[in-house]
Nucleic acid binder design. Structure first.
Lengths: 224, 224
DNA sequence: CGAGTTGCTGAACACCCGCTGAAATCGGGA
DNA sequence: TCCCGATTTCAGCGGGTGTTCAGCAACTCG
């Protein structure tokens, strides 16, 4: 399966960079734009599966761009809205979008919502498989070698992240930002949860979650 | 089954956006329009199963558009009427709309009526089944393991939503917007009604409505 | 071989989440 | 208007969870 394509339209440099890199880390293909001037062309050439769209843009605002997207493609849309300034009751009305995220937001949340929309649009399968492990993000069900495994919410988020990065070594720092949204934090937090995950998973099968000393962890079937 | 297609014609930006977003959240495919200028073309190309039509539109009014819809398609029609002015209602129904909703309306209500019309048109099955549970949305009859279950209106709406999302974890926030139309509200409201539902359902059978701590609820047969 | 670093895990604990009984409020009919 | 059921609010209670901490094990490098 080829990676889903995401078009990101956001004028603020820092946010755009952070969002794009988070989505890329998640295995998605990303096209960054600072405005919607070439939107039609982008839709046509890049054929995004989903558009991440800031509401506040210089020039044309996000809503009119949303219309353009709707008219010109089947893409999903996730909007970035500012929390302050807009009354709460209007927040639900910021739509026509498939989902929206209010600033300031945690990157992990945006990624999760993008994932959810892609899933709903059928663009992405909701279950991931690594060795004998099956993780279904939609239903929250985890199976290892045929046995149902009960996980807590954080354990599930952690496992989903590791499964999405299957075969790749991820550092504790990366995990902290992706799963918790923390920038600088005690790595032991990760170690504790990894420990818990192992206890629950490997009660039903062989080792899966490997430590790479000095670097981080990998989710990979096999003993190496 | 492929999702039903809904054409929404409404000039007021905020309302159109809200309606579209609510319908999309409900799993329907939506095409938004601000006026009826391209109605014939839309009917022909998009082939909507149902049209949501505002009565008050700039230019041609809703009734003449209704005629166009009737003439050019088999689509159902739900009209949005300004106030509960009796003349409007009569015209809407005698004009052949399948249902109408008076502004201001709660999103959940519009969605429910759209659903009802789709069912009546045979576009959507009216009964849903999950394990030993059978919910007939049209008649409001609920059966669990052969026993009739008496539910209040809210409990029924809640159960219908959960049944439509069967096997998927839905957050209390999602439930609040889908069932109540609330954007930001006390999750305890959901908990109370879930509690009531369980008391009535699980008097006649095994657990069905599972809590996923930190994430939400799932309707799913089985003990896991 | 020893010191320092990195990773693992059991235990403790504060906190948050979800559940529920009961009170308060709402709303529709007679 | 009153009444009654439905809905919503409130408060308290368990218990599950996330996080911290400390001690120990494993590994690296001098």
């Amino acid at each position: 399966m080829t990676a889903a394509r995401i078009l990101v339209i956001e004028d603020a440099e820092a946010i755009r960079a952070a969002v794009c890199s988070a989505l890329r880390d998640h295995g998605l293909e990303v096209l960054p734009r600072t405005d919607g001037r070439e939107l039609e062309a982008d839709l046509h050439r890049f054929r995004p599966d989903l558009v991440v769209l800031d509401v506040m843009l210089p020039g044309r605002d996000g809503f009119s761009l949303l219309e353009v997207v709707r008219r010109g493609s089947q893409s999903g849309v996730v909007m970035l809205t500012a929390r302050d300034g807009v009354p709460d009751r209007l927040r639900g009305l910021t739509g026509g979008a498939d989902d929206y995220v209010t600033k300031p937001f945690v990157l992990a949340e945006l990624v999760a919502r993008v994932d959810a929309v892609l899933r709903r649009l059928g663009r992405t399968p909701s279950t991931m498989q690594v060795g004998g492990l099956v993780v279904d993000a939609e239903s929250g069900v985890v199976n290892y070698d045929g046995n149902a495994v009960e996980l807590t919410a954080t354990e599930l988020r952690l496992l989903e992240y590791l499964a999405a990065q299957r075969g790749r070594v991820v550092s504790k720092t990366q995990i902290l930002t992706a799963v918790w949204g923390y920038e600088d934090y005690d790595p032991n937090l990760v170690e504790v949860h990894v420990s818990a995950l192992r206890r629950k998973l490997e009660a039903h099968g062989p080792r899966l979650l490997h430590t790479v000393r000095g670097l981080g962890y990998v989710l990979r079937p096999g003993d190496t």
